[in-house]
């Protein structure tokens, strides 16, 4: 279970998270929605210790992330796959090496690594792309490689940072299906940060809206769709005022 406890974070004196509290249950996919620049990605990065909270903490399976030493943080990171907004593929490495890099840290044999890479690429429908370089891939393919890199690690948790941003509707739908398939195949717990409501309804078990540094409302897809909260309604309907 991942628990955000009263998380607070400011950049250059400008507060971004102001008491962000959310509980993500094992096996479920929670989608965090909210306006651009409200701190959704910032919250996500606290889970793997890429950012340190000014106050509050993130608790992963009873471990407070801010208190972990380097070895414990590395151990925690081995349980979590992170899919970055722009995939963050290593552009000097082939697709195979991008996927194999994390696996080489786990003392697997070369055969096991090759098997896991092939399996992950098959899951994202990119079999045969092993020797290609990120520069040769389309935006959607890069995102799929990013997801494959995360699932090749067979993590307990996967964190998706804006997985469909910048994609055409069809490719975005493919990515959505992929996230659902990943959850069903690997039974991982997921957190998805997005402002794409179609994606949120497709992949989410629960949806939480981040507004002004805090959770404004959290509920199932049906509860969010029927909400009477004017702020949440305006956001999910995409109304300007």
């Amino acid at each position: 279970m991942i628990e955000f406890q009263d998380l607070r974070k400011a950049f250059d004196g400008r507060p971004v998270l102001e008491g962000f509290t959310l509980r993500v249950q094992d096996g479920e996919t929670t989608v965090i929605i909210g306006y651009s620049g409200t701190g959704k990605s910032v919250a996500l990065k606290h889970v793997v210790g890429l950012l340190q909270a000014d106050a509050g903490d993130v608790i992963v399976d009873g471990r407070a992330v801010s208190t972990l030493d380097r070895a414990a943080l590395t151990a925690l990171r081995r349980e979590i796959g992170f899919v970055f907004q722009f995939a963050a593929l290593f552009d000097s490495m082939s697709v195979f090496d991008n996927l194999a890099l994390g696996l080489r840290r786990r003392e697997l044999s070369d055969d096991e690594i090759a098997e896991r890479v092939a399996e992950a690429l098959a899951l994202v429908d990119l079999t045969g792309a092993e020797d290609r370089y990120p520069a040769e891939l389309s935006g959607g393919m890069r995102k799929r490689v990013g997801i494959a890199r995360a699932i090749a690690l067979r993590p307990r948790y996967i964190l998706y940072d804006e997985p469909t941003t910048g994609l055409d509707p069809v490719t975005a739908a493919v990515i959505d299906q992929l996230m659902v398939r990943t959850r069903e195949h690997l039974r991982v717990t997921g957190i998805v940060v997005t402002h794409d409501m179609r994606s949120a309804y497709t992949v989410g078990d629960r949806i939480a809206m981040l507004y002004e540094g805090k959770i404004r409302q959290v509920g199932t897809v049906a509860q969010i769709q029927e909400t009477e909260d004017p702020v949440v309604r305006q956001f999910i309907e995409g109304r300007p005022t």
């Binding site: 380097r70 590395t74 970055f84 907004q85 890199r149």
Partner: peptide, 17 residues
């Protein structure tokens, strides 16, 4: 370039220092 394209963050999430 690695820093601004989050490749450094990606390295950390893959348990590399």
């Amino acid at each position: 370039t690695m820093k601004v394209t989050e490749q450094v963050d990606a390295l950390e999430t893959l348990a590399y220092d």
